[in-house]
């Protein structure tokens, strides 16, 4: 069970959260103008990286807020979590041993 640092509430056990998939996929402002390929990509295509992953979580059984996280999918350690709307932090390499402090 992971420990996840909610940007609003602090560290909490994973059971309080819900994983919500890849982060930074904005809904097109005018979906009807999207080509089939563009719309298909928005709906379904995902990075699924082996390594640093920007992903969404929701503190479902806490503050209820959505937020983003950078997590290394090869270790499951978080580098950081950040609020929706904030840009993806620039992080290179892998998550530190022991994870986010």
């Amino acid at each position: 069970m992971l420990v996840i640092h909610c940007p609003y509430c602090g560290p909490r056990p994973e059971l309080e959260f819900r994983h919500c998939g890849q982060a930074h996929i904005a809904r097109p402002l005018d979906p009807s103008a999207q080509t089939a390929d563009e719309w298909g990509e928005y709906l379904y295509l995902r990075e699924n990286p082996k390594g640093m992953h920007a992903e969404r979580w929701r503190h479902m059984h806490g503050c209820g807020r959505f937020f983003n996280a950078l997590r290394d999918t090869t270790t499951d350690f978080f580098v950081t979590t950040y609020k929706c709307g904030e840009p993806r932090p620039a992080v290179s390499g892998t998550a530190p041993a022991g994870g986010q402090r």
């Binding site: 998939g21 379904y44 295509l45 995902r46 990075e47 699924n48 990286p49 082996k50 999918t73």
Partner: peptide, 18 residues
């Protein structure tokens, strides 16, 4: 589980999550 990684080498994105 590594299909996304291998296909990514050819620039092909997949509707997959591992």
């Amino acid at each position: 589980g590594h299909s996304s990684v291998v296909l990514g080498m050819a620039g092909v994105k997949l509707p997959l999550e591992s």
